[in-house]
Design a protein around this nucleic acid. Structure first.
Lengths: 341, 341
DNA sequence: CTGTTAGCGCATTCAC
DNA sequence: GTGAATGCGCTAACAG
């Protein structure tokens, strides 16, 4: 049986005008408690359910925010989404989740779809493929606020939440140095993305601080996918006589590299420490000696959502903010096959 | 600058009635190719963007499906969501993601909200707290199709996608037996949920098949949260002189139990094998000996979404289906601290 | 405080 | 094939 109960039904049943019913249902102060009660009672009796579509159309705003991530199933992003959902739930917003899969074409379609759905705002982490931002125009046209997270975007006019990648790179590398590593390699990502540039800068800075050379043979850039980790570590071993530590700019490549080493049973002169990002609860178990630098995904999600809500709820355009979160180095003991950040 | 371009604007500009514009934009066959072209051109020129809110209100249906999971950040669910998103994207649907956090109250609110938003359908995995299903009535009232996944629900009239939990429990237990374990404990979940009942049944069946006793002292039910794993393993060690293997009904508890054992440096007479669900890419690294039973989350998401779409797109109510996916036991060598399923 | 009026933007009847 | 009229369900403006 279809639910066709509208405010008019309860208006008719009570001989009260539908506008008053609407007001009562919205808990307006300009309705007597008595009539409010009567209306609410009748509404429940008839099984009334507000049609938010109509309400949103009339008000020309929705209670939905769009979220675009490269890949939902990566733990950093899923915990980030959890953070967004948490604050959205508390403020009566829904979230629409979309994944770009690092593809510009998908990102373009998604943006258009979100704009057509008149979302109240958009939170996004741009794809690796994205080099210019024409596809974001529909949001601009629709006057839809946009907040970036994790991956920085070179266009002005938008708030951003980032992790201090420089610091993360620095901390990770310094940690390896403190464990006695001298010859430390770096698996880096596409230099078109700020996050990888900054992690690399942190790596360099830590080496320099401790008087170690920055050897180009020790740095390999890739897309940091599954296959890249194994390939890169292989190359590194070939090219370098000595290799004490590896700082990986993400977890996927780090894990792949470790798997590769384990599979080949490679014993290198010194322990290898590999550092990438991961806040998997499970990661602790990999090695008792594991050190990690946690990316605060959940926190970041909450902050990004709050930033966006501020924009949504302010009548006038407000100043953009950039929030930089500190990564969290969790040190453990030795440094064999460490997976971290 | 606000995007206020409606079909009326392009109607006015072209001196063609808005209804024709609407038809053209919907690619109706009852519009000349010529006028269609003119209209599409003008639409692009003016930067027209269809207002899906209005369209949906008029058609009384949306292009959005709601997804309710206990917790987004658990890998099984996030990869499941990725599967749902994939098929949704390909069929021009959006997905609204909500997490119940295993709380009935939240689940209730979420259901009401989705109903109010007139989603086209709902995919859900009920929370552990959910014992009856009154809170699903809004969906029924709204005639909104509902498909369950992962966790079975004892009400009829809905399609379901499940993993063969009996088989998973059986496989995991038999694997432990084959590794030489005789005294195998089981960390089970709330017996109100079918999945845990069935995993337990599989456990029992495997023991019986191999002529081993089913000892009640070896079975502990809990909510399988972080704290439960450690507590349960502690209790098991206290109560049992011998303990060769443990089959854990989920990964959270299993990981917690392993951590606890490692922390206390407990050496038990024989190896302990702990089996829980996890398809983390990282899990392989925990122990070279790790065996896992993968839950096909992505696949399940796709299947569930397809089932729902079938319901949504059929004019008449269609027969319910139950799809049972096989778990995937990936055997590795020894059986020390195994985390799987 | 409550009722009246008038749309939000679109799609779907009907006519012609 | 196209136009004119109508209303999806709700809220906001204005009266009173």
């Amino acid at each position: 049986m279809k639910n066709k109960v509208t405010i008019h039904d309860i208006s008719r049943a009570l001989k009260i005008d539908s506008s008053t019913v609407s007001r009562a249902l919205n808990n307006s102060s300009r309705v007597t408690e008595k009539t409010k009660e009567k209306i609410l009672k009748k509404a429940k009796e008839l099984g009334y359910q507000r049609n938010l579509l109509a309400s949103n159309l009339r008000k020309n705003k929705t209670n939905t925010i769009g979220v675009i991530v490269p890949r939902i199933s990566r733990h950093f992003f899923s915990s980030l989404i959890a953070g967004i959902e948490e604050t959205a739930y508390n403020t009566d917003y829904n979230i629409i989740i979309c994944q770009s899969l690092e593809l510009l074409e998908r990102e373009t379609n998604i943006v258009a779809s979100l704009a057509a759905n008149r979302v109240a705002g958009v939170l996004m982490s741009i794809s690796m493929e994205t080099k210019n931002y024409d596809h974001l125009i529909p949001l601009q046209n629709g006057n839809i606020p946009l907040v970036f997270f994790d991956r920085q975007c070179n266009i002005s006019g938008h708030s951003t939440v980032l992790i201090d990648d420089y610091q993360a790179g620095f901390d990770a590398t310094e940690h390896l140095i403190q464990q006695g590593c001298k010859s430390i390699a770096h698996l880096s990502g596409p230099q078109s993305l700020e996050i990888y540039k900054n992690r690399y800068k942190g790596y360099k800075a830590a080496l320099e601080k401790h008087g170690l050379d920055v050897d180009p043979k020790l740095v390999i850039s890739s897309e940091l996918m599954e296959k890249d980790g194994a390939e890169s570590i292989e190359q590194l071993l070939e090219k370098n006589k000595q290799l004490d530590g590896v700082f990986s700019a993400n977890d996927i490549a780090a894990i792949s590299a470790i798997k590769h080493l384990k599979k080949k049973g490679i014993e290198v002169p010194k322990d290898i420490a590999i550092v990438g990002f991961s806040n998997e609860p499970i990661s602790e178990l990999i090695e008792p000696s594991l050190s990690t630098i946690d990316q605060p995904g959940f926190e970041m999600g909450k902050m990004a959502a709050n930033l966006l809500l501020k924009q949504i709820n302010s009548a006038v355009p407000i100043e953009n903010e950039t929030i930089i979160l500190k990564p969290n180095l969790i040190k453990r003991n030795s440094c064999k096959y460490q997976v971290s950040i």
